[in-house]
Computed example of a mutant assay.
Amino acid sequence: MLGKIIMAAGLAAMLAGCGGIKMDDGRHRIPLKSETVSALAAMGTTPGDAMMIRIIKDENALEVWKRTSGGQFKMFRSYEICAWSGDLGPKFKEGDRQAPEGFYTITPGLMNPRSNYFLAFNTGFPNKFDRVHGRTGSNLMVHGDCSSSGCYSMTDDSIGEIYALVRESFEGGNPSFQLQIYPFRMTAQKLAKHKDSEHFAFWTNLKEGYDRFELARAPASWDVCEKRYVFDVASATPLDPAGACPPGARTVTAALSEKQAAEKAALDTEIAALDAKKAREAAALQREKDAEAAAKARGEAIGSFIGGLFNGGAPAPQQSQPVEAVPQPKPRIDRS
Rank of each mutant, 00 (worst) to 15 (best):
E208G: 02
N205F: 02
D196C: 04
W203K: 05
S221F: 04
V233Y: 11
D211P: 00
E226L: 02
E226T: 09
E263L: 05
Q260P: 00
P241L: 06
V233I: 09
F231S: 03
F231C: 02
P219K: 09
L267M: 01
D196A: 10
T253F: 00
V230C: 12
K207T: 14
L267F: 02
R212W: 07
R217P: 00
A244N: 10
D268P: 03
D240M: 08
T204V: 10
A242Y: 05
L206A: 09
D268Y: 02
P219T: 14
H199A: 14
W222A: 07
E263S: 10
F202N: 07
G243Q: 06
F202C: 07
N205C: 08
Y229R: 03
S197F: 09
A244M: 12
E198R: 07
V233E: 01
H194M: 12
A249I: 03
A261L: 08
H194A: 04
T204K: 12
L215V: 11
P219L: 14
D211H: 11
A255H: 04
D223C: 06
W222N: 01
D223T: 06
D196E: 15
N205T: 14
C245I: 09
V230S: 03
K193W: 07
P241E: 07
Y210M: 09
A201T: 13
E263P: 06
A266L: 05
Q260A: 02
G209E: 05
T204P: 02
E198H: 10
S221W: 01
K264D: 14
D211K: 01
E208T: 10
